[in-house]
Amino acid sequence: MPDSDRQPHTSARAQDGTVLAYQRQGSGHPLLLLAGQANNHRWWDGIREDFHATHGTITMDYRGTGASGRPEGPYSTQQFADDALSVLDELGVEKADVYGTSMGGRVAQWIAARRPERVRRLVLGCTSPGGPHAVERDIAVRRSLVQADPAASRQALIDLMYTPAWLAGHPGPYTTLGDPDMPPHARRGHLVASNGHNAWDVLPGIGAPTLILHGDEDRLTPPDNASLLAARIPHARTHVFRGARHAYFEECRHEAGALVAEFLDGLW
């Protein structure tokens, strides 16, 4: 049984009163882990433990997912950032390391740009700045995710997340394919939030040391976005994982985990 299943859910309240479930494990400097679109804390199952030698990890269920409230919306990445800060406030965490992947990386951008005093070090994985400057996925990818056959759409997402070689040795289940219990309005809200993200103008205000990670075969969020972020965020560093797709953090777990740990510890 994963550690996350043995931990009781505790909760904070968002600014609008929405219940926000969060999970805290380990000890050490706080590390806030932010999941991808339409996912809850299970996104980090089996990975978060890699940081527990030096960090206590904090995850949360975005509004609309997991054990959190499911208001009608509208949703936005700015709102998700405010929700994350409400969780840190509830825990009494004044300053945390923040690691966001996919939509979680978009949320992390707002936290680091608007509340720089709350972020010690920042890691942005498989994400983009959003808006007109971002490099968007191609039309074939978009079509593959909205097929009439749900099984075909799910398989398309699996193939975008992982390479065939990795899938051959890892038959699942996979915890990065979305929260299956989300109501339709929340799923739509997450899609609108992610698609509406545009942090281009605030990225130069990020003052925390920043590490940008990406897989070079990522078609869900094309890897050129890593270069865009690195050029926009002062003194950002970039690492690209060769032969990896969107879920580089799982497929390249040992390399990526060690790299992030070293960065958070100030070793490079």
Rank of each mutant, 00 (worst) to 15 (best):
H246Q: 13
I139F: 11
A247Y: 07
D201T: 12
L20F: 03
V87L: 06
G66Q: 09
G92A: 02
H9N: 08
H185R: 05
A134K: 10
H197S: 13
D201H: 12
A108I: 04
T127K: 09
G178S: 11
P129K: 03
V202S: 06
G17C: 09
Y22H: 14
R48H: 09
V98N: 03
L191R: 14
G46S: 09
H29G: 02
T10E: 15
I58T: 01
P71E: 06
W110H: 15
S144T: 05
R120H: 15
G69H: 08
L177C: 03
V240D: 00
G69F: 06
G56H: 07
H185E: 12
Q7R: 12
P2M: 10
P8L: 10
G196F: 09
W43L: 07
A96M: 05
V87P: 04
M161V: 04
Y248D: 02
E72C: 04
M60H: 12
Q147Y: 04
N225F: 07
L85W: 08
D179K: 06
H246V: 04
L259H: 11
I233V: 14
S128P: 00
R106V: 03
A53K: 13
H29T: 14
D138E: 14
A84I: 10
E251Q: 14
K95Q: 15
Q15C: 01
D3M: 08
Y99F: 15
P222D: 10
S68W: 09
R187M: 11
A247T: 12
L32K: 10
Q7Y: 00
A247E: 13
G26C: 04
P173V: 01
D201L: 11
V135P: 01
G130I: 00
G26F: 08
M60W: 07
